[in-house]
Nucleic acid binder design. Structure first.
Lengths: 143, 143
DNA sequence: GGGCTTGCTGAGACTGAGTATCATCATCGC
DNA sequence: GCGATGATGATACTCAGTCTCAGCAAGCCC
């Protein structure tokens, strides 16, 4: 489980400073079950009583993204969002109804990439795969 | 091959008006080998001597995207771009060096989606897959 | 061809995400 | 505790994308 402490450890491991602001952002992200936008995070920061500048929030998100503990998503609406995640290769399945996000590892992409490479002559270096659907909880609620 | 004429046919088929502006945008898109941003298209419109408002350009892109002859991409940089494409299900392989875009059909995703659904309990409704790499031409140039 | 309806256009104001700047502050190694 | 330097935040700014609304023109009907 990714928690605020592991965020801090990552900061220390990279030789970066551990500030109150980063601690607060880490705690908020760690407490988030699904994805969130920068605007949402900003509101939560205010609600929690912390006083963190917008620029700092953006910087913290970018930083955590570089450290691999947070990933940036592009929602179908075109909005940018973030999810906390394990720093290993994986993909996200995002619930279109409640926004809950689940990580899927071992995605079976390597064969697909080999096939695409063979067919197009491209040397495929990276890919982005996002799956959207309805989570089990929401499916029950709808039914 | 997708050309400007097929864009127009799609408009007519959908009962939409065929205007000079839409014709001009269709011609520019049809002449584009790779992806392009709205800003790039805007510059080309000006260079070609047409006089099309920005709002109209956005509307035309959105329209063609709805008609399935253009697709919206999210580049790794976070920028939004568009590519012209066939209106069937497929994915794009994008060259990180020259921007050329190639469509890949029959992507082998169904099995992957079934597996993810089985593992997470999600009912997967749609997905977004984009592959980034180096195209054959660029590979030769680098070598 | 002429008139009419209605969808389309464009200028410009607006919004909101994200960035740049820079003086001030706080962390952390010594 | 001290100092170097990385981090912060207020503010101004840029730029993509949207909204509005008066005027225009495509295409239908006669």
């Amino acid at each position: 489980m990714t928690n605020a402490t592991s965020f801090i450890e990552r900061l220390e491991g990279a030789g970066l400073r551990v500030t109150d602001q980063r601690r607060a952002v880490a705690a908020l992200i760690a407490g988030h079950p699904g994805h969130f936008t920068e605007a949402e995070l900003e509101r939560e920061v205010q609600r929690s009583g912390s006083r963190i500048g917008r620029a700092t929030l953006f910087r913290a998100l970018e930083l955590f993204a570089q450290l691999g503990v947070v990933e940036r998503l592009d929602l179908p609406s075109g909005e940018h969002a973030y999810v906390r995640c394990e720093p290993s290769h994986h993909h996200h399945v995002i619930c279109l109804r409640c926004g809950r996000t689940v990580e899927v590892e071992g995605c079976g992409m390597p064969e697909l990439i080999r096939e695409v490479a063979a067919r197009t002559g491209f040397q495929v270096e990276r890919h982005r795969l996002e799956l959207y659907g309805i989570c089990p909880t929401c499916r029950e609620e709808i039914a």
